[in-house]
């Protein structure tokens, strides 16, 4: 279950932002033209940024003692995270002048579009400081709104609370469908999830629905998990849709991970050795207790999963005829019948 440490090994030297970007400015002008004609490496990147105050507050607290043994990786405050993410978004825009970046915030109580590089028009729109301040302003608004929504009658105060990943995935997919509809030559879309909070089991069905829809429309879901645990949802999402799943070991170098792994367009990915998944958690969560199980009972009518044997299915209401003394319980007999 350990995440692959290839990128950190490859780029373990001292590193500054500037070291990776100057070559972009020295691109011969002709090259830019060439890129214009060959639009198969133009990308649309929908970035889903997890803005979970509960997680970031707890991680900010542990920044103080960076030697804390419990959180070896979660030593990054939210403002530091933005220091990594916003330059990354800018670098995506600089990689190809036709690239489009959409930023969606995943909150605890809501999800919202924050920034769309295709929307902004005018002279100063594309400039780096303008993009920066725009993103920060909208994010601040969003966080305030999200907090207010949480102050309703039913307050969520649990520390391990999850973000609404299913909501932001659905938004991203709707947006991508719009791009598919808009013109015949659209940029190649992909989704990048920057996730930090743990999975919410209650979102299981919705997240899976989004994953299958992304798979059908050939949209890869990349995921970069910055939390303490691996995310089973995102492992499955990336595995099923053919994206990259990465859990960086040293969050100080997040920009480096992002630019080395997630910046390349889909065309170029075939030439790269991207991190391979270290196993995918395919366990299901049962409908009765939302527990993650590796063996369980499945209703033959509606395929609901239960961790124990029930007399009646709680989802579809069908009554089960026999006790589960099905062939599987007696392995010897089963093997014989399968060989006959």
């Amino acid at each position: 279950m350990n995440s692959v440490s290839t990128p950190s090994k490859l780029y373990s030297g001292n590193f500054t932002y500037i070291s990776s970007s100057p070559f972009l400015y020295f691109l011969p002008p002709l090259m830019g033209l060439l890129i214009l004609w060959q639009s198969d490496d133009v990308s649309l990147i929908v970035v889903l940024l997890d803005v979970n105050p509960f997680f970031w507050a707890s991680s900010a607290a542990s920044v103080g003692d960076s030697t804390s043994p419990h959180h070896p990786t979660a030593i990054l405050s939210f403002s530091k995270l933005l220091n990594h993410v916003i330059p990354f978004l800018n670098s995506l825009l600089l990689l190809n002048q036709l690239n489009q970046v959409v930023l969606v915030a995943t909150g605890v109580n809501s999800c919202s579009y924050i920034y769309d590089s295709g929307d902004s028009e005018g002279e100063s729109a594309g400039s780096v400081p303008a993009v920066c301040s725009e993103i920060l302003r909208r994010l601040e608004e969003f966080v305030d709104k999200d907090r207010l929504l949480g102050k309703g009658p039913d307050k969520v105060v649990a520390a391990g609370v999850s973000s609404l990943l299913s909501g932001s995935l659905s938004l991203a997919l709707c947006y991508i469908q719009r791009v598919f509809r808009s013109k015949a030559r659209h940029p190649q879309p992909r989704i990048l999830c920057l996730q930090s909070s743990p999975d919410g089991p209650e979102q299981y069905v919705a997240v899976m629905n989004s994953i299958f829809s992304a798979q059908r429309s050939m949209v890869p879901i990349d995921s970069c998990v910055m939390g303490v645990q691996h995310s089973a949802f995102l492992q499955q999402a990336s595995y099923i849709t053919g994206g990259v799943y990465l859990k960086p070991q040293h969050l100080d170098g997040l920009f480096q991970y992002l630019s080395a792994v997630f910046a390349t367009d889909l065309q170029s990915r075939s030439f790269l050795q991207l991190p391979k998944p270290a196993g995918v958690d395919f366990r299901a969560s049962c409908f009765c207790h939302k527990k993650t199980i590796d063996m369980g009972y499945v209703c033959s009518v509606c395929l609901s999963i239960f961790c124990k044997h029930h007399k009646k299915c709680s989802t579809c209401g069908s009554e089960f005829s026999q006790a589960p003394s099905d062939p599987n319980a007696t392995p010897d007999r089963k093997r014989k019948t399968s060989e006959v």
Binding site: V280, G296, S300, V301, H310, C313, A329
Partner: peptide, 23 residues
């Protein structure tokens, strides 16, 4: 839509294996 008498509802025991690491 399932017709109740067409197929007996039953609980089937199933396993959810994990995918092993590449390599």
């Amino acid at each position: 839509p399932a017709i109740a008498e067409y197929a007996a509802a039953n609980l089937i025991k199933m396993g959810f294996p994990q995918r092993g690491a590449e390599g």
